[in-house]
């Protein structure tokens, strides 16, 4: 009986994720977002090439890593918002209630959404490989083993961002609230992280006292949100690639999986508690 129920659950997850995946891939949104992310990457890369032309030298571990980071952020942002909209809309329109009369449960529903997002991101990974390989051929900026490792770890980091999106949308009722909360929190996390990265990159002697205080404050805030912000997992992953530390790399994958699992379980629990009517 339990085996039959388990098999049914798997079938449901498959059906839900397949339906949503096809819907995502057949819409223009994902392609437009991929295009925009590559335009942003191309802009950064053009600046790199201009600076090499001007200074005749650029020393970098992997100049493609930062454009990749930006592309991953844009796409994961989109995926998180897409999931949040999808859940809130289905709640608003009563589709979720109808689904839950069938074999769909909180577990299968959340898992279905999560798997759809991960599969969509895997399609994006193929796009990344094509784009960055092409960029490397066009410019001679290195398509390195490190970049491949970064792309691999980005899958786990995106899993964190997607789970975070599902968690926020399970907490909120209306679609508008979901989007505002999700974008607000993710933007805040991102601002802290980007701000700290910029300040860390500045030479100490060029920093004014105000910037030093700002840097210290961001450092404290960053430590506070270190394990909460899904973007930290991406940064830590990139750091582990940069340090060529396999243990750290493996640990980061484990941490990302644990983070995703905790948020997914919380989302399932909240959806169960709050019900499907929003």
């Amino acid at each position: 009986m339990a085996e039959k129920r388990f098999s049914l659950s798997i079938q449901t997850v498959k059906a839900l994720s397949k339906r949503d995946l096809y819907s995502t891939l057949r819409s223009w949104g994902i392609y437009v977002v991929a295009f925009l992310s590559f335009i942003a990457s191309s802009f950064i890369l053009k600046n790199y090439l201009d600076s090499i032309q001007a200074d005749d030298i650029l020393i970098s571990a992997d100049p493609l890593n930062y454009p990749l980071f930006i592309s991953v952020i844009i796409i994961s942002f989109y995926l998180a918002i897409l999931s949040a909209i999808s859940i809130s809309r289905e709640k608003d329109q009563g589709t979720l209630e109808v689904l839950f009369y069938g074999p769909v449960s909180s577990l299968t529903y959340i898992l279905g959404k999560y798997i759809k997002d991960i599969l969509t991101y895997l399609v994006m990974v193929v796009f990344f490989l094509v784009y960055f390989w092409g960029v490397s051929l066009l410019t001679n900026l290195g398509f390195s083993y490190g970049l491949l490792k970064t792309i691999l770890i980005s899958i786990f980091s995106v899993s964190c961002i997607v789970s975070f999106g599902l968690f926020i949308s399970s907490l909120t009722g209306k679609m508008r609230n979901s989007i505002i909360w999700l974008v607000g929190i993710l933007a805040l996390f991102l601002a802290v992280q980007v701000g700290q990265t910029i300040l860390l990159g500045m030479p100490e002697e060029n920093m004014s006292p105000v910037l030093t205080y700002l840097g210290d404050t961001l450092s404290v805030v960053s430590q506070g949100i270190n394990w909460i912000s899904p973007f930290s997992y991406l940064t830590r992953g990139i750091d582990s690639v940069y340090l060529e530390n396999t243990l750290l790399y493996g640990l980061n994958i484990l941490y990302s999986l644990a983070y995703s699992a905790i948020l997914l379980l919380l989302s399932i629990f909240i959806l169960k508690r709050k019900g499907v009517k929003g």
Binding site: L25, W28, K46, I52, F127, G142
Partner: peptide
């Protein structure tokens, strides 16, 4: 590595390929 600066503009053109894939799917 000696970079190929002359291909800078091609980067923007190359960014269009996801739209082409989208068009094919559509």
């Amino acid at each position: 590595r000696l970079v190929k600066k002359e291909n800078t503009q091609s980067l923007y053109i190359f960014s269009i390929f996801p739209l082409l894939v989208g068009a094919v799917v559509f």
